[in-house]
Nucleic acid binder design. Sequence first.
DNA 1: CTAGTGTGATTAAACGATTTTTCATCCCCA
DNA 2: TGGGGATGAAAAATCGTTTAATCACACTAG
Lengths: 332, 332
Amino acid sequence: MQPKLKDIAKELGVSTATVSNVLSGKGRVSEETRRLISEKIREIGYRPGGPGRALRTGRSGVLGLVLPDISNPLFPAFAQAIEAAASRTGHGILIADSHGDPTAQTEALERIMQRGADGIVIVPCRGTQVSGLSLPTAIIDSAATPGNSVCADHFQGGRIAVEHLQALGHRRLVLLGHSRRSSVQTARIAGMQAALAPETRADVYWLEEAAPDFAALAGDGATAFAATSDLHALTALTRLQGAGLSVPGDVSVLGFDDLSFSAQITPGLTTLAQNMPEIAAAAVQHLLLQLEAVPLPAPRLVPMKLLVRGSTGPAPNDPKHNKTTQQGDVTT
Amino acid sequence: MQPKLKDIAKELGVSTATVSNVLSGKGRVSEETRRLISEKIREIGYRPGGPGRALRTGRSGVLGLVLPDISNPLFPAFAQAIEAAASRTGHGILIADSHGDPTAQTEALERIMQRGADGIVIVPCRGTQVSGLSLPTAIIDSAATPGNSVCADHFQGGRIAVEHLQALGHRRLVLLGHSRRSSVQTARIAGMQAALAPETRADVYWLEEAAPDFAALAGDGATAFAATSDLHALTALTRLQGAGLSVPGDVSVLGFDDLSFSAQITPGLTTLAQNMPEIAAAAVQHLLLQLEAVPLPAPRLVPMKLLVRGSTGPAPNDPKHNKTTQQGDVTT
DNA sequence: CTAGTGTGATTAAACGATTTTTCATCCCCA
DNA sequence: TGGGGATGAAAAATCGTTTAATCACACTAG
């Protein structure tokens, strides 16, 4: 049985109020009893928390986190960053997986509210729009989503990706997305297209609809593949390598999100990383501000960062570049 | 403001006790009022939960989940499975990341207990041993860990891996682990070694200590690489492919845990998968039994399952096998 | 000597739900 | 007519903690 406030009070012959005052440093307590009580507290390792406090104060110290798919390789980093940011402010994280299903998402939100969370961080399912919750909410999606609170600047990430490839001399690009219903992916592709030089040609493929033959595209003149996710970049990379092409000698590959495996493979995957700690901190901050009824700041766009690894190199037959493959991570 | 029990009671002119009775179906309520109240409840969408209930009943309906590293690509699947299993029994999941640090792990446990969790599922940090918690606990680690509650049968997984490779004719194996301090990895390697035929040679490399030159090993006669994680299998596969070797034509590669990317790459990675749903269900079950003070069952060992994809094939120059690479997943 | 002022600590109410106890009827039968 | 169930619902206690209100006491100033 956990020690309770009453136990301490009884053992020291004082009232629970006095003990509580010592804990919070609020009421009037003599130096003497304060010392006595805090010593006892340390001795038996008492921690106030629990439902009692939550009931009285109306704060549970727990934030909900609703994700469309925990097993998506991007979300671990998300969850970890959010957990870290919440820990820093003394909050716990209650997770829920919506399995990409809007109905499940609604249920998840309800369950979290029912459990008394103080606020909710939501990464919404594709195509859903969350609003009108009676709880502080932070939405992490894309700049285009109404109600979005904070997110990576996917558009800018796309631009940087294409700028990087063009600077290496690539003029025939293949842009790979998974689903055009994902606002994140469409933003990245749009950013890529916005950065295209007049002489650059870029074909977009949505893998959900039809998977192209990567090696054939390369044979047809494409020298660089830019995917909206490292997962698809990896698919392309292994398929190209398997077909006997050299990466980045014959063809460059670039991805997004710096997934766990991206630095592990050979060549290392050049990728655009989200600044997870900053996004997470902003999301948590967003909730805490709402809890204090502070007017909300404008949606935050956190810049993405290019990590140059070995999978991108000079376009073949480009006179300007004939250096060898770069080693290690270079950030810009 | 969320609707409260008192609101409903006041609005219908009954006592809170009566409403609570309707909710739980316990006390004596006339059919008439029961109908009236439950209709009102449905109308305003009231859900009892919250700290009030937790305080009175002593159950918060929340289970803690402590992981050594959320961003480890294996844990998403873990977390998802646990979340699903807990949802099924009406529980929420409070996650905490110990960052592989025993001190942080202890703190995480305390924070979770303080928040009033009903039980804790722990995947312990390497080398730590959790015990003596005043809360129901389920430990998921390896069979060798004292106090282990449930885990995959890593040893058996290792055996199956080597048996698979030997059946394909491989007689020169390279076994890859990351750290010999990981009880999971040592169990897998031990299982692999236990299945070796007398004429098979297998060299073990711990990547944490020294990373071998994979291509050189292959040139030296090794025809198959078995890693204790898909992550390292992927490292090996891309490096071998990059060196111009054909997988599985020249060399086979096998991993563990069926990570998110394993089916996405070319060739698909043959791997030994953990039965996450079963492990998660067993862990949650373990907690629920303790809550009801039922004597604990013996530790559960959940068999691993071989998923044969394209990365393993017949050993080169093996007279018995000359089929082409298999397509798709074949389970045994 | 009394009223006012601090000081240190206790009492009691409150939070939202559950559960035990009590209460008020009504009905039946002796 | 008056006890004895049965029935339906209200009253009250309880969980652990915080906090406003209160109290007891000493000290000081008028």
